[in-house]
Amino acid sequence: MSFLVGENMTGGYGSADILHDCTIGVDKGQIAVIVGPNGAGKSTAMKATFGMLDLRLGRVMFDGEDITHLKPEERVLKGMGFVPQTHNVFTSMTVEENLEMGAFIRRDDIASTMEQVFDLFPILKEKRYQPAGELSGGQRQQVAVGRALMTQPKVLLLDEPTAGVSPIVMDELFDRIIEIARQGIAILMVEQNAKQALNIADKGYVLVQGANRFTDTGEALMANPEVRKAFLGG
């Protein structure tokens, strides 16, 4: 069983189900990517593993423990980090304060973690006293990821981290994400840019209408002609 896994998840926000028997998992040090057409329930599937919607069926296991009924805040305490797609920084607070707030639940010294984040994203060190709201889109995403890393999570969930950034910034962000995974953190992310994302993925999930269509390694999915034709534009 994977380190984090949502098994046979069925449910939605209201009466209508969005997910249908969907299974998604990721292991430590791995990058798992969820791709699929618009409205396939990609974000919903990831949010389901984070407890942001009620599951009618299925369960979520984290490090061998059933966390299906925990609230998102409680999952943060367990060691999950989540970076929302939008509104993911405290715009009125400085970069440094954003990182401090990320580490809010920690009572120990956070200085070394902050140094690690600054090593990962050097630009943040430069802009540490600047309000996050004044940064560019790509820099904001770095703050957002950095904030989530401050809790020293075992799993990091990223909701379209490259939405709205230029291709160069996107490559840069992906490089950083690989680097984070190498430190032994499990990364589960939803991506609109399927090709680039599957390139770096250890594991890929192709969702259609809230159900698993293809599940394989990133490489294999890239090689699968059916996937290429239907989802990667040939």
Binding site: V76, S92, E100, M101, T151
Partner: peptide, 22 residues
């Protein structure tokens, strides 16, 4: 102060504050 900053964070972005464990 930590508490004061968490107050600003909550005022700035309630959902993100929740995600940060505030």
């Amino acid at each position: 102060t930590r508490t004061g900053k968490s107050m600003r964070a909550y005022s700035d972005n309630e959902n993100l504050a929740l995600l940060s464990g505030i």
